[in-house]
Amino acid sequence: MVPPNPDDVRRSRRRRITLSQLAAQLDVSTATVSLALRDNPAVSADTRKRVQALAKEMGYIYNRQAASLRTARTDIVGVVVHDVLNPYFAEVFRAVEAELEKNGFTILICNHRDEIARQRNFVKVLQQQNADGLVICPSLGTTREDIDEIVRAGTPVTIICRDVDGAAVPSVRGDDVRGMHEITAHLIARGHRAIAFVGGRRHTSSGRDRHAGFMAAMTEAGLSPVADIPELMSQGDGRAAVDELLAAPVRATAVVCFNDVLAFGLMSGLQKAGLRPGIDVAVTGYDDVDGSESWSPALTTVKNGSDEIGIEAARAIRALIAGDPAPFEHMLIPPKLELRDSSAIAPA
C-alpha cells in the first residue's frame, strides 16, 4: 500500500469543507445547515436528510474550535482517574460518561497512575483545549493549591473517590471509614482474632480512611493487626504480599484487603502456597467490582457506589459549567456489605 503524499494531506486539510460550502450547494442558510447537522427538529426532516447526506458525501467534519469561538463552550469534560485498568474506576468513569453524554458532552480520560506530573500535564492540555470542566480522582500529592489553581484558570472542578483537604469544590465518594469498619467487624464476629490489613496509599483519603475504619473495629474488639502492609494496590501486589503474611510471627486467619483487585491477587497467591481462600484463610475486598461475585470463592466485599458517584459527579459538574451553584459540597455514598464465601468462620 502506497503511503499518502504529505503535500496532498496538507492540501486536503486546507480544503476542509465548511458550513458555507454546504449551504451554498443546497441553497439554504448556514444556520439551517448547522441545525440540520445537529438533527434539530426546527429543520424539516427532509432538509435534515439532504444536509446530512451531502455532508457525508463531501467529507464534512465538525469544527469544534470554530464552534467554541462562537459559543465559548467546547462541550468537553476531562475525567482524571488513578488507574483505568482497575474495574472500579472503569465503572465510575462509565457512569460519569453515560450521564454527561445525555447532555451532549464529549469525555476525555486520563490515567495519572498516582503521578502528580502526569495529572498536571493532562490538566494543562485540557485547559489549552478550553475544556468546559474537570472531574478528578486526585493523584497522590494533590493539594488544595493545585485545585485552586485549576479553578482560578476558569475550569470548574468536581472531585471523586478521594478528597483533597481544604479544596473548595464539590466532592463525592464512598464512606470508606464506615465501610471498612463494617467488613472488619464482620470478620471479628465470625471469630477471627489474627487479622491482617493489606494495601492502600495512606497519604490519600481513601487509604487513610479505610485503614482508620479497620483500626477502629480492631480497637473496639481489643485487637491489634498481626500484619499491616501499606502502599499496595494491584493484583500483582496482592500475590506478592502472601510471602510476607506467611512469614509473620503470627499467621493471619483473615486478611482485609484495601480493594477487590488486591484480594483477587492475594487469593491467587494463597492458592499457589497451598492454602484455600475462604477455608484456610478468610479474605475480604472492597468496591464490589464486576467479577467479585463470580470469583472462586465468591468475594466478600463492600459495594462502594460506583454508579452513584458517577451520577452525582456528573450532576455537580453540569451545574458548575452552567454557572449554577453546586448541588452539594461533600457527599458520602453509604456502603453496602456483600457477604459471600470468602469470609470463612475462624478455625477452631
Rank of each mutant, 00 (worst) to 15 (best):
T301F: 07
S12Q: 05
D260N: 10
G236N: 12
R144K: 15
G274C: 01
Y60S: 05
K102Q: 10
N111V: 02
P4K: 00
A45W: 03
M233D: 12
R113A: 15
T204C: 12
Y286C: 02
I183N: 06
R73V: 00
P41K: 02
S29Y: 05
V96Y: 02
S296K: 14
N5W: 07
L19V: 00
N103K: 13
T18C: 02
R340W: 05
A23I: 01
I107Q: 07
A45S: 04
Y88T: 00
S20H: 15
T143I: 01
W295A: 11
T155C: 09
G238D: 10
K56D: 13
A36P: 04
L69T: 04
T71I: 03
R15L: 07
S44Q: 02
H186W: 05
P327Q: 10
G274Q: 07
V33Q: 00
A98V: 01
I333V: 07
F328A: 03
N121K: 13
R178E: 12
I333A: 08
A221D: 10
H211I: 06
L22Y: 05
A346C: 12
L19A: 04
M267K: 13
D75A: 07
A66C: 02
A263M: 14
S342N: 04
V9H: 09
D75Q: 08
F93H: 12
A196N: 08
V51F: 11
I345N: 15
P297H: 08
V250N: 07
A153G: 15
A298Q: 07
R152F: 14
I150H: 14
A217P: 12
R120H: 07
D165N: 08
K124A: 15
P170A: 14
Q129F: 03
V43R: 00
E97M: 02
D287G: 11
V281P: 15
Y60H: 08
R13I: 07
H112Q: 14
D163F: 09
I229S: 06
D7V: 05
R190H: 08
D75Y: 06
K336Q: 11
E145H: 05
I147K: 09
G265S: 06
S306E: 01
V261E: 05
G78H: 11
F89L: 00
G179C: 03
K124F: 14
N103H: 13
C137A: 15
I311P: 11
A55M: 05
A212K: 10
P347F: 01
E115M: 08
L134C: 14
R13F: 14
R15K: 12
I279D: 11
E244T: 12
V283A: 01
I188A: 09
A227H: 09
R120V: 00
R201H: 13
S12T: 03
Q127F: 10
Q235P: 15
S20I: 05
G141W: 11
T253I: 00
Q21E: 13
V177R: 11
V177S: 15
K124S: 10
M233G: 11
K124L: 10
K56I: 05
S342D: 06
G59D: 02
P335V: 02
E293T: 04
I333H: 15
A98M: 00
S205L: 00
I311N: 00
I229A: 03
E312K: 10
F93L: 11
D243Y: 02
F105M: 00
